[in-house]
């Protein structure tokens, strides 16, 4: 693997899950939980004659940002499309559980200054959701992760990172939406039903999955940023995500709740307002929404470099803050 300094400059998209996990926390602080050496691979795949991986496609561990312990989950899209099965799912759940235990410990040991040391959970998603080869276990894992995120709410921040080739779809799309803060790059995609599935179910006229430009302007980072489905948009570098995480760690914890997009009556009402607006605008394409939210020339946004885009983009105004 590259050295930490080199990792910061590496494209997030081109890096593997382990490199991302190492690079998202401070230099030299990452310790992996259940590493490849523990050889905890899927018990189900060999029966089906499918290749296995020692980490079951999910890298977990803990590192630091400043004094704060950061519990990292990093999914690997190259292994079975990042689909979550029994072992990988259990690793995700256990990592959040450990973060919550660390929260209790820190609070006990530093009752007066525990905010400086408040743990956080960072999940780098690269997945289409449930691994169909072990669907029951995979579904259960989704439910358990949701459960843990609910337990963490109001105690420690849970942060989503999406900047990979596969994106974040299926059940894990729900999971990502349920976290406190979402950070994406323009290469990241977030959605529920994957583009190919929509095309297969409703037809090419409804959604042409081969039209990548359409796929990205419907599910990609830039669109999610304009629509406020993601809080921060960063460049496609591990270091850019790391810098944004550093910034998020500076946000006082009592303000984190304000970054959520769902999870309260008010937020539901805000989402319903948006639905109403969508009916009113009757958009044929996401570009119609971009225009509605103040982007005079929505066509030009797609090809803009990151810096240009950040300078010129207009976003939907949040009602709740």
């Amino acid at each position: 693997m590259l050295k930490w300094d080199e990792l910061q400059k590496a494209n997030f998209t081109d890096s593997n899950a382990r490199a991302r996990a190492y690079g998202l926390v401070d230099k030299g602080t990452f310790t992996e939980f259940v590493s490849p050496k523990d050889k905890l691979s899927s018990p189900h795949l060999p029966v089906l004659g499918e290749a296995i991986e020692f980490d079951d496609g999910i890298v977990t561990g803990v590192g630091l940002i400043g004094k704060r312990p950061i519990f990292v989950v990093s999914q690997e899209g190259k292994f079975i499309g990042g689909a979550v099965g029994e072992v990988g799912g259990a690793k995700m759940v256990k990592t959040i559980k450990l973060a919550l235990r660390a929260y209790e410990d820190v609070k006990k040991e530093h009752p007066d200054s525990y905010e400086d040391r408040l743990p956080a959970v960072v999940i780098s998603f690269e997945t289409g959701g449930v691994r169909l080869h072990e669907a029951n276990a995979g579904l259960l894992a989704h439910a358990e992760v949701m459960d843990q995120i609910q337990d963490a709410r109001g105690k420690i921040p849970v942060i989503t990172i999406i900047g990979s080739k596969v994106g974040c779809f299926g059940g894990m799309g729900f999971v990502a939406a349920a976290t406190d803060v979402v950070i994406m790059s323009e290469n990241g995609r977030l959605g529920l039903t994957g583009p190919e599935v929509i095309e297969q179910e409703i037809g090419k006229d409804e959604f042409d999955a081969g039209d990548k430009a359409l796929v990205f302007r419907t599910t990609g980072g830039k669109h999610k940023y304009i629509m406020q489905d993601c809080n921060f948009l960063v460049a496609d570098k591990i270091g850019a995500f790391k810098t944004q995480l550093d910034e998020v760690m500076k946000i006082p914890f009592n303000e984190i709740e304000g970054y959520r997009r769902i999870g309260s009556l008010k937020l539901v009402e805000e989402q319903l307002e948006l639905v109403k607006k969508a009916v009113e605008i009757a958009p044929k394409d996401s570009k119609d929404m971009w225009k509605y939210f103040g982007n005079e020339n929505p066509e030009s946004l797609t090809n803009m470099s990151y810096d240009e885009f950040m300078k010129s983009v207009k976003r939907r105004e949040r009602i709740c803050k």
């Binding site: 693997m1 593997n16 899950a17 590493s35 490849p36 050496k37 050889k39 060999p46 290749a51 296995i52 991986e53 020692f54 690997e76 190259k78 292994f79």
Partner: peptide, 29 residues
């Protein structure tokens, strides 16, 4: 440890072990 089990790819785990100078290999595919 090195690599990812992507399509057309593989991972390798090497462990130092007293094997009388030889190398033992296990491959799962």
């Amino acid at each position: 440890h090195f690599g990812v089990v992507g399509s057309g790819d593989m991972e390798i785990l090497m462990e130092k072990m007293d094997l009388n100078g030889s190398v033992q290999v296990k491959i799962v595919t």
